[in-house]
Design a protein around this nucleic acid. Sequence first.
RNA 1: GGCCCGUUCGUCUAGGGGUUAGGACGUCAGAUUUUCAUUCUGGUAGCAGGGGUUCGAUUCCCCUACGGGCUACCA
Length: 561
Amino acid sequence: MVRVRFAPSPTGPLHMGGVRTALFNYLFARKNQGTMILRIEDTDQGRFVPGAEEYIMESLAWCGIEIDEGIKEGGKFGPYRQSDRKAIYRQYSDQLIESGWAYYAFDTPEELDRIRQEGMKAEGQEGKEKEEKSERQAFAYDTVTRMSLRNSLTLPAEEVRSLLASGASFVVRFKMPENHEIIMQDIIRGEVRVSTTTIDDKVLFKSDGMPTYHLANVVDDHLMEITHVIRGEEWLPSLPLHVMLYKAFGWTDTMPQFAHLPLILKPSGNGKLSKRDGDKLGFPVFPINWNNPETNEVYSGYREAGYFDDAFVNILALLGWNDGTDKEIYSMDELIEAFSLERVGKSGSRFDPEKAKWFNHQYMLLKSNEEIAERFLDELSTLDKGPRVREDDRKGLGTEEDDKNDSTMPEEEWDRVVKIVSLVKERAEFVKDIWSQSWFFFEAPTTYDESVIKKRWTPEMPAILKEIINLLSPFFVIPAEAGTLSLTTELEESEPLIATEYEKLIKDYITSNSLNMGSVMNILRLCLVGSSMGPGVFDIMELLGPDEVVARIERAAEVIS
RNA sequence: GGCCCGUUCGUCUAGGGGUUAGGACGUCAGAUUUUCAUUCUGGUAGCAGGGGUUCGAUUCCCCUACGGGCUACCA
């Protein structure tokens, strides 16, 4: 039975690299009918950030990453928050001391800092004689230095006992064996060997009574019966320690398998993508908006930037993984089906925001017009733009509950929006682009592109436009003389013109009068849209209806000439 | 500095001892179109360098370079 965990620390928002780690855990779990666990690693009380835990859960939920065991979901291996498991760790720390794998250390952080400083100076002087630029050897609490520091290895047993009894502050350190080669297996990287002489005596248990990541992680993974540890490459350097810990506890037989994922790098410049990048890079690094409770700053997320949840997951999945085919668009189910850790690459990947947009565009095309229309209307209601939905109708529009297409919107209006979406979505990357591609369906242009006028407008144009108006007037929905009147009865009686009928009407007129197709069409577009953009002129006419088309032509002719 | 990991077009990547080194994004050009865009077609561009091993290395090994990670009583 496969059991994996995603174990973030609630020190702030999760960034996209963290989400990808969660995703790979999830895909692996589902692929193997295993269990996905969310464990909150909050052993550093100093770095606790309010709201981060909720943020993590909401982000994963948005991505469709389902948790089987966790704080909210429960499970037999709880609690799932390390601060709630505090009582557990002490006994394991004690166990290691009893078995000689760990020891008490009484050096204060200040003392150690001072030693580090001095070491730097001493090395610097020494280095001067040899090589000016030689860097100092960083101090390490290790197999050689530990014998000259204040700990239960150097102090008389008596003194250790009285120190502990007096409540002196202490930490527990792992006693890294000397000169031992640790051979590790990583699913992604293969065999990794490290000599223990290069590893220092890591703190396992802090003076505040909490374990460090290393202890908590190993103890919890063991207790929670984790079978595979899938985490970022930044943990690879501590793998030897963890492996030694399993050995020290006598848990080698049930030690999980490890897979260290390559990192996601910034698109330009150096380094891995980091939380601190915030919005500096010109694209979001967070899955959903993050409101920093300390500064009240808001950092943008993919959700709010307009990315579809499935597109975002797809983008993440292909950062460092592929199934060996040319396929690039995957649903979550397809990802689960195709996923394997063996096909995760070894090298870090730079994130390409341009390609991310392309992915979103692909999902735009894939989704139904109705789904896009709903999102579009939601977007418009927050922008306070768009269809002339009456005030009382609009009330029903923005509310969260209203998932199905807005019942308060008249059906013809809804159909019209869907039609508009179908016309412009192929040229949109995000739902918000749909407005900039289609606003002229909802409001008449007030300005007219000068360059088009300059290029296409001729003295004969007013007469030509007049002729076109005459061509269309027989199809008015609202008779010119009538005032406000009931349009329902009129609508039922006359079928509105469709695009091909407009096309025939106008093209016939143009050819029979041997006019220039390009000029007339472009001027027509200019009248309707105000510039040279948008879908086919006849499609625009169909959706606008003859009354509006004529009104716009009249207004444009007046303004331009 | 030390330890560890990595290195195929600008980017994401496939491939793997003998290939015209494949795809995608981007970019450029052409075609289509009444416009912008889409779309289509085509082009551009890559095995970090040096040594081995081998009949033959981009592929295997070593070194160097470069990139990245870690080096806290943070995770």
